[in-house]
Nucleic acid binder design. Structure first.
Lengths: 113, 113
DNA sequence: CTGGGTACCATGCGTCGCATGGTAGCAGGA
DNA sequence: TCCTGCTACCATGCGACGCATGGTACCCAG
């Protein structure tokens, strides 16, 4: 009856995960498998690869990231992702929405005492 | 191309809204229309009634709230919702998931500088 | 030449917020 | 009386997104 912490996290990720990936690209371009390793590692933001590639495809279609193929020393070629100007603007918009949402949830959880 | 702040909020609400309603019931039982007024008022946590009643039905089916009909002085009878012990436990679980998720997002957004 | 690691992608499912619209009781004014 | 409007509840269908699953292809070690 009472949901597990994992299923709760699954729902919370909705809509935020996308922008966390965008934010992680501010430091410079990266390729999918590497992003997956980083975000899966903390166990909170992402569950597995199956989530990442459709997400990156959406970002690309929306023009929020640009991509380029690069050869790899070991293994198949990699598709590198870089944030675009539109992506940076979207990230700013998200940051505003996130802070107000986060504060509203925190306030509701703490209660008016 | 760049999504609106509203559509971002719509996705963020996923999974959190449910527990915000639960949290608002800690102060005592309440009926649907009143909960809706409160949560719609701040414009961040909920969009409209259409969201609330299916949500309350889910909470009831999951046993996280109990309900009772009470007559009203003015207007139709009201269905009052009260949080159950299972509901309180679920709320605790959510609070743990939320804080770790919130911190992970905040960290990603701020970046490692 | 075969196993395992790297790297990418497609498909289908379930859930949940939301838009929309509908039912019903009561009050007050024309 | 009738009718407009508020209160209060509920059902239905859609769309988006995270995820599970599985598949392809490249390269190196043994």
């Amino acid at each position: 009856m009472v949901p597990s912490e994992d299923s709760i996290l699954t729902n919370l990720r909705r809509g935020a995960l996308e922008y966390c990936v965008l934010a992680s690209l501010r430091e410079g371009e990266a390729y999918g498998f590497d992003i997956a390793r980083r975000l899966v590692a903390d166990g909170v933001l992402m569950g597995g690869e199956g989530t990442l590639y459709p997400l990156l495809a959406r970002l690309r279609k929306a023009g929020l990231v640009s991509t380029s193929w690069q050869e790899s020393d070991a293994g198949p070629p990699r598709r590198y992702y870089a944030i675009t100007d539109d992506g940076a603007r979207a990230l700013d918009t998200f940051r505003r929405a996130w802070t107000s949402f986060r504060d509203a949830v925190d306030l509701t959880l703490e209660g008016p005492r």
